[in-house]
């Protein structure tokens, strides 16, 4: 039986990030956190577009980009299927680069709060081991 992911995206139409990229990011995030499991099918382009009240072309652009990246696979007559577990296959450099903006924010905030780098790393480690 088809195993549809009952997950709806949350998009912000007036953000500077293009909508299709928001969708891509959310699919990836939720695959990473495990909210979307491998081998499940995503909702169809029309369903997503209808639900979010956005242009179907935008959704299909997001899906095809994900397909190109190997995250999703198209199954004839059934729709988009989640292929991989996480970003395992994407190369390390690329993954590192994605994290850097976030870390930069952490750095700025930490220096505002006058926290030493070592302290920050400790905190991060503690979070990891939670």
């Amino acid at each position: 039986m088809k195993n549809k992911a009952k997950y709806y995206f949350q998009i912000n139409t007036s953000s500077g990030v293009p909508i299709y990229r928001q969708i891509i990011d959310q699919v990836k995030t939720h695959i990473a956190t495990g909210r979307i499991k491998p081998d499940t099918f995503l909702l169809s382009v029309r369903q997503v577009a209808g639900e979010l009240e956005i242009n179907p072309m935008t959704v299909s652009k997001a899906y095809s980009t994900l397909e190109k990246e190997g995250v999703l696979g198209y199954v004839r007559g059934q729709g988009m299927k989640v292929k991989m577990k996480s970003h395992a296959r994407a190369d390390l450099k690329k993954r590192e680069r994605e994290l850097i903006p976030l870390l930069r924010e952490v750095k700025v905030k930490a220096s505002q709060l006058s926290l030493q780098p070592k302290k920050v790393i400790d905190l991060l480690k503690a979070l990891w081991e939670e």
């Binding site: 029309r46 577009a49 009240e53 956005i54 242009n55 179907p56």
Partner: peptide, 26 residues
């Protein structure tokens, strides 16, 4: 949006309300 996803249709519109455009326009 319903019309565009149901059948082949081109929509051309002018506006200065950008948030609407962001939602529907490609």
């Amino acid at each position: 949006l319903k019309i565009v996803s149901d059948r082949e249709c081109t929509v051309f519109f002018s506006t200065h309300i950008t948030s609407d455009l962001e939602r529907v326009a490609d």
